[in-house]
């Protein structure tokens, strides 16, 4: 399992190749790549702040839960921090499982967590200045899909 933060742009395709290599019993790899939106010129850049060490550890706890819940073989998460330009990849999640359903669902579960609860602080810089962003109601609603009853 790998959870990492990076200040540098990354190539999701290269990460997928690396993650998939040598998995003769895995059967299914699902990935998600989130890309910074320009919002029709309203966002010039996105700035993400993390708490190094704490942020990776908190994401790691949720990745462990995903691994247990969906019976994953492996998980990889790479998240950008610092200034991110529209069109650049912000986050990459890869999940490996014996069968596709678990891989898809675990990827979806991890993204709902990462978008709503992960320890990041997000600032959007637009033409009129910068503002701190908090999760949307939709992000919170997405997370409730995974509550175990």
């Amino acid at each position: 399992m790998s959870v990492r933060l990076t200040f540098d742009p990354f190539d999701p395709g290269a990460l997928l190749s690396e993650f998939s290599r040598g998995r003769s019993e895995t059967g299914a790899v699902a990935t998600f790549t989130g890309i910074a939106r320009a919002e029709a010129g309203a966002t010039v850049a996105l700035e993400l702040e993390a708490y190094p060490g704490f942020t990776e550890a908190e994401i790691g706890k949720v990745a462990d839960r995903a691994r247990a819940r969906f019976g994953l073989d492996d998980v990889a998460i790479l998240h950008r921090v610092g200034k991110i330009a529209p069109g650049e990849a912000v986050v990459f999640v890869a999940t490996a499982a014996r069968h596709r359903r678990a891989a898809f669902e675990a990827c979806d579960f991890l993204m709902d967590y990462l978008k709503s609860k992960a320890p990041f602080w997000k600032k959007e810089q637009g033409p009129g200045g910068a503002r701190w962003v908090e999760p949307t109601d939709q992000d919170h609603a997405d997370l409730t899909r995974w509550e175990e009853t």
Partner: peptide, 10 residues
């Protein structure tokens, strides 16, 4: 000692 405002997610 770290003061953490509400987390925004990524």
């Amino acid at each position: 000692v770290a003061f953490l405002p509400p987390m925004s997610g990524g």
